[in-house]
């Protein structure tokens, strides 16, 4: 793990994880209503994920993976059930508090990177710190440092359009980690990449993101990256049908 990341000032408000699961879902159900049609995307999900692990959320399209991580990340409200993330019950805090919670505790890696095209790599990485009202020059300096650690020391001033897909995803990972979140949510981080780049990205997530006090949850379709997970949560039709722990046990 890099020194730069380790020396970041802690910004999280959530309580220490010693007495909590990083993620705890109890009977989480999510229904979408379109006209007269009611679609149940999640059906009574119970899930506990500890910190210090990389959990893979896998399953066929439409099984509810994205809905589940949206709820876990505080981006969607469950229809029923309770979600506790880093000891904070997301179903009992206001929208504004949720925005604040996300900004301080959660890092995001998106399938399409979602970098701001007008900002350089270093400026993109600095965005979460700027959101947290850090001085810009300090944030960008710290971002340059972090980009070095993800192997992009020579591309700090490049615009996203000047970077390959793999490089953009590495920038996105650095952006997700710069504010030292205690939960990292990655949505199909290898889906837009070729096999080699995908492998590199997963190695990077494994190497720099997984920390004893941080939970990492990765949604993926890509069976080639299953080997990176400590825990694989398989979903079908809005339900969890198997949780596999990589040392061979499953339940």
């Amino acid at each position: 793990m890099s020194t730069a990341i380790m020396t970041m000032p802690a910004t999280a408000q959530a309580p220490p994880l010693a007495t909590h699961s990083a993620i705890s879902c109890r009977g989480v159900t999510k229904e979408f209503v379109a006209g007269d049609t009611r679609v149940r995307a999640l059906d009574g999900i119970d899930l506990e994920l500890p910190a210090g692990e990389l959990a893979l959320l896998v399953g066929p399209s439409g099984c509810g993976k994205t809905t589940l991580i949206s709820i876990v990340a505080g981006l969607l409200e469950p229809t029923r059930g309770e979600v506790s993330v880093l000891g904070t019950n997301l179903t009992r805090i206001s929208g504004g508090q949720k925005v604040d919670f996300r900004g301080k505790n959660i890092g995001f890696v998106f399938q399409q990177y979602n970098l701001l095209p007008a900002l350089t790599a270093a400026e993109n990485v600095a965005v979460p710190l700027i959101i947290a009202r850090h001085p810009r020059h300090q944030a960008v300096a710290r971002a340059r440092n972090l980009l070095e650690q993800v192997g992009l020391a020579d591309r700090t001033e490049s615009l996203p359009t000047q970077l390959s897909g793999g490089q953009q995803q590495r920038v996105a990972i650095a952006r997700a980690l710069i504010h030292e979140p205690r939960l990292l949510v990655c949505d199909e981080p290898t889906a837009a990449l070729d096999a080699h780049a995908g492998q590199t990205v997963m190695e990077l997530i494994r190497k720099v993101a997984v920390q004893p006090d941080r939970a990492v949850i990765v949604v993926t379709h890509d069976s080639r990256v299953y080997g990176f997970g400590d825990r694989i949560v398989s979903m079908t039709d809005g339900k969890i049908d198997k949780i596999e722990i990589q040392n061979g046990k499953s339940r």
Partner: peptide, 13 residues
């Protein structure tokens, strides 16, 4: 919109 969405997800009110 996607960028605004990302910022919103990342904690911008």
């Amino acid at each position: 919109l996607k960028q605004f969405g990302s910022l919103k997800a990342m904690g911008v009110s």
